[in-house]
Design a protein around this nucleic acid. Structure first.
Length: 671
RNA sequence: GUCCUCGUAGCUCAGCAGGAUAGAGCGUUCGCCUCCUAAGCGAAAGGUCACAGGUUCGAUUCCUGUCGGGGACGCCA
């Protein structure tokens, strides 16, 4: 950091930005270096090893460290005595006079108070760094592939998907700020039974225009679909019944080619009438029919639309079809992986369990051949990745399972050079995790045998799975009934719309995002539509946004009175305890971002922002009479405006990392 | 049955790589706008951190077990 904290210098070639916490840590690290020179300690410590806490009690100073508890062991001393010995060295190391006082407390804590220039520098840091305040190199550029949502393209997104989406998007923003190199990816599950059923379901509507028209005329959005009887083939078992099926069918009917296909009376089993019958798909499954592809593409557009309502974009949309060699210029990596695993005895053929009818609609399951199982139970699989059961990758009829495709997918991810993979999954998938890690381990072993020099990259611990718990949708405390089977469910879009305040288009997105981020991923979340729609304090998003707007309006007010914040404003006018506390809170922001990144916990940021606002509102109210921000005291006004700007900057930066708008003013309240 | 996860104020939840006297919001009670946004602030009340052991200077935090809520154990995805 430059020694001139006064001037918010113009952009030098990316200054090595430090934070107040880092500067204090450096002082302690330097002190240990001095101690090492003088034989008091065996070795110096790195700044990062100096744990700094903000004590709960004001009597314990501005910051505290328990550094000497750990060092006492190696120095064969007791913490308290060592701390006493170290204090002079700490003072010596504090060349810039950051620290005002130091004391040893309790069994060996060091409590410290910062000099006014010290704590004020935190506000200066914010103003100098601007939008980049809080950024760090914690992640050291580690290449992370963050896969999230990956909802089947068989219908609109529901609320649970939304939570995973918001978590993933916020996490991507936070990780990037913390110095990770992040790619986000959505895995499109466009092969398999589910998508096949989507095709069948749509097909049924397309076949009967009269019924379709009648249905469309009478169904309301979100209403259960009274599926008519008497369809030639019957509706597919566990097919999709939401009104969106009819909507999709209606849209597909606009497509001339499909219209021709759909109006033909030929049975859907007659491949000839379908156009693209895929020779590489010998079992003739629905998932590769033209109608199916058209249908999931339709659904994908809808999903993308829902995601953009939440301001979420992905770096890449990864098609499962490409793994099966079904997309142009793609290889059948799924079959390849299965073959190589089998060759290396990581998989084996076995009749095993008799195949159950896997509800292929009207077609009864054929007598099956031998299935291929992945040996996830092998003793040489490290314990945490070992499965309790061998899992099928190729069914008796040769069709790959979802797991088989996922093997090829994760092989592909690692082959692309990522250091680390984070998958965000619904908590109901947790049983799936060990087998996925296990198969990555197996692929590593396989590649080692094949002589791949990069084989070590294929290790189970490169995969990290974040499990997201369910969202319980409530309205005024009462559960909103959701039944996928009945076709009666509230979509993510419905929820966003319902909590959007008239006249403020982003309010619904902001509310949904913020509320989703006020809980740890692995905690169940109650989402009460009534509460989130209200603009009250049960609804923290308004609290934080209001704080930002209040800060903005204070700055605007000052400007209007000809007292605008000047770039050279001095912070010397900040003298109150509350101002020191605010600065210390601002100093914590980079710590919080780094912590949220390391722990993959965006909620920490949400809670932090509420704390910032709480402190600001208290300051603002409490000094309404004795120390207003805008006053006749020019010096004090400038300093306080600078503080206000810094607080505003932190809130804006924090909200930005959560993907929530930071408004300059709040929209009119609802009556 | 096996595995995962959660159990903290009346309710909903925080609690950072173990630290000092346990934190918020809602709800309840009582206060605060002639003056920068009252969508705000202050105060009061509210707790055997599910239970029992263990690890150590120190445990709400880490480990084991018990009890309770939720979830997963398919040739589904």
């Amino acid at each position: 950091m430059s020694n001139d904290l006064r001037s918010p210098t113009t952009t030098a070639p990316i200054p090595p930005m430090t934070t107040l916490y880092q500067r204090v840590r450096q002082v302690f690290a330097d002190a240990t270096a001095l101690a090492a020179q003088r034989g008091l300690l065996p070795a110096a410590v790195e700044p990062a090893e100096v744990a700094l806490d903000r004590p709960k009690q004001a009597a314990h100073g501005d910051l505290a460290t328990n550094l000497f508890f750990g060092l006492a062991k190696t120095a064969r001393s007791n913490p308290r005595a060592l701390a006493e010995q170290m204090l002079p060295l700490v003072r010596e190391a504090d060349a810039t006079g950051l620290l005002a006082s130091l004391e040893v407390a309790g069994p060996g804590f060091v409590n410290l108070r910062l000099a006014p220039e010290g704590w004020r520098s935190a506000a200066r840091d914010v103003l100098v760094a601007g939008e980049r305040y809080g950024h760090s190199d914690t992640g050291r550029g580690e290449r992370v592939l963050l896969e999230f949502v990956s909802a089947n393209p068989t219908g609109p997104m529901h609320v649970g998907h939304g939570r995973g989406a918001v978590l993933g998007d916020a996490l991507a923003r936070i990780l990037r700020a913390a110095g990770y190199t992040v790619s986000t990816e959505y895995y499109i599950n466009n092969v398999g039974n589910q998508v096949g059923k989507l095709g069948e379901s749509v097909w049924h509507w397309l076949r009967d225009e009269a019924k379709r028209a009648a249905a469309l005329a009478t169904w309301g959005k979100g209403e259960p679909v009274p599926f008519p009887d008497g369809f030639p083939l019957g509706f597919p078992e566990d097919g999709y019944r939401g009104a969106y099926i009819a909507q999709a069918a209606e849209q597909l009917a606009q497509n001339d080619t499909l219209r021709t296909v759909c109006q033909s009376q030929s049975d859907w089993t007659d491949q000839a009438s379908w156009g693209a019958a895929e020779p590489r798909n010998p079992t003739g499954r629905m998932d590769n029919r033209g109608i199916t592809v058209a249908a999931w593409q339709q659904m994908l557009v809808r999903i993308q639309d829902d995601l953009s309502a939440l301001d979420i974009r992905f770096d890449r949309w990864f098609s499962e079809r490409q793994l099966h060699g079904l997309d142009p210029d793609s290889q059948n990596a799924v079959a390849d992986c299965a073959k190589r695993l089998t060759a290396a005895d990581w998989a084996f053929e076995d009749a095993g369990t008799v195949a159950a009818d896997d509800d292929e609609g009207a077609a009864p399951a054929e007598a099956t051949g031998k299935a291929v199982f992945f040996r996830g139970t092998r003793e040489d699989v490290p314990k945490p990745f070992r499965d309790t059961k061998d899992r099928v990758i190729l069914r008796g009829d040769g069709r790959p399972t979802y797991f088989a495709a996922d093997i090829a997918y994760h092989d592909d991810k690692l082959a692309r050079g990522f250091d680390h993979m984070i998958n965000i999954l619904g908590a109901d998938h947790h049983g799936y995790v060990p087998r996925l890690k296990g198969v990555i381990h197996a692929l590593g072993d396989l590649r080692r045998r094949e002589g791949d020099p990069k084989a070590d990259r294929w290790s189970g611990d490169r995969l990290e799975v974040l499990l997201v718990q369910m969202v319980a949708l409530l309205r005024d405390g009462k559960p909103v009934p959701m039944g996928k089977r009945s076709g009666e469910f509230v979509t993510l879009r419905d929820v966003i719309d319902e909590v959007t305040t008239p006249g403020n288009p982003t309010s619904g997105r902001d509310a949904v995002r913020f509320v989703f981020l006020t809980r740890k991923a692995d905690a169940q979340l109650d989402f009460d539509l009534e509460v989130v729609r209200r603009s009250s304090m049960d609804n923290p998003v308004y609290y934080v946004q209001y704080g930002h707007a209040r800060l903005a309006s204070t700055l605007a007010r000052a400007a209007a009175e000809g007292k605008a914040l000047r770039p050279d404003a001095s912070l010397d006018g900040l003298t109150l305890d509350d101002e020191r506390d605010l600065c210390l809170i601002l100093a914590e922001f980079p710590e919080v971002v780094a912590r949220a990144a390391r722990g993959r916990e965006p909620h920490q940021l949400a809670f932090y922002l509420m704390e910032v606002c709480r402190a600001f509102h208290a300051y603002y109210s409490q000094h309404k009479h004795d120390a207003r921000v805008i006053s006749d005291d020019e010096q004090a006004t400038q300093s306080r405006l600078a503080l206000v700007a810094a607080i505003k900057g932190v809130i804006a930066a924090g909200l930005g990392l959560l993907g929530v708008a930071a408004p300059e003013r709040m929209a009119e309240l609802e009556a």
